[in-house]
Amino acid sequence: MPAKTFRDAPAAFADLKDTGVLRDGMTVMVGGFGLCGIPETLIIALRDSGVRDLTCISNNAGVDDFGLGLLLQTRQIGKMISSYVGENAIFEKQFLSGELKIEFNPQGTLAERIRAGGAGIPAFYTATGVGSPVAAGKEIREFHLPSEDTRYHNRSPEAVTGTFTDMKARVAPRAASAPARREYILETGLYADLALVHAHTADEFGNLVYRKTARNFNPMMAQAAAFVIAEVERLVPVGALDPDQVHTPGSYIDRVVPARVEKRIEQRTVRK
């Protein structure tokens, strides 16, 4: 097995254009929430690779001079799929001028679309966004809330096969007190050409352990892209991690590099 660990991000990116992993117009997932748990070292390497017209799937878009703000400065992003893009003046300017497209997703929908994509689930129904602009143009179906239908699990009683008790249930009408169905909208899974994630610790196989709220979108993204690079603060030999404590199995990870950029805090708030 070729080694997954590289001495730095440029080394890990060196052959990626030749091998076709990096190309203009590609879709890249970038982990993090705000500036917490973002793969800053890898974002800089992606910027320096010069690839353009990127679609970036990331909860936020960084700030002007940190995070994905770096790729906005150089106009390498053509479209963002995000839930919130607050604190970023460059973003606003490029969006208003029409240079940059944005697809807003509710944060939970975004997280679940990524999780589904990585799990091979092409689409799923969710109540989030019903009646809002998010539902526009999407298929809508009615279901019972799963917790309100623990007997038939949103299948027709006729479709439930098995024991004699179940067969008797088929002719029994659903209880009159059964709660009403609700509307759900169909959302699709997301899969990217490349994912960049930040973890606290990795072993040389790529098993990852995240730290505190820096975990956020990183584990799902690590499972939802054709090529996955992780930057880590600490690298340990295979066998040094307790298998019970691994958050992302190493099989998902193609390359591991040391994180080299100091972490930044967006809103330092302290107790008085």
Partner: peptide
């Protein structure tokens, strides 16, 4: 007006 995004609000009110 400039739209910043819904964050987690839609998920919270739905769930």
């Amino acid at each position: 007006k400039m739209v910043k995004g819904m964050g987690g609000a839609m998920d919270l009110v739905a769930g």
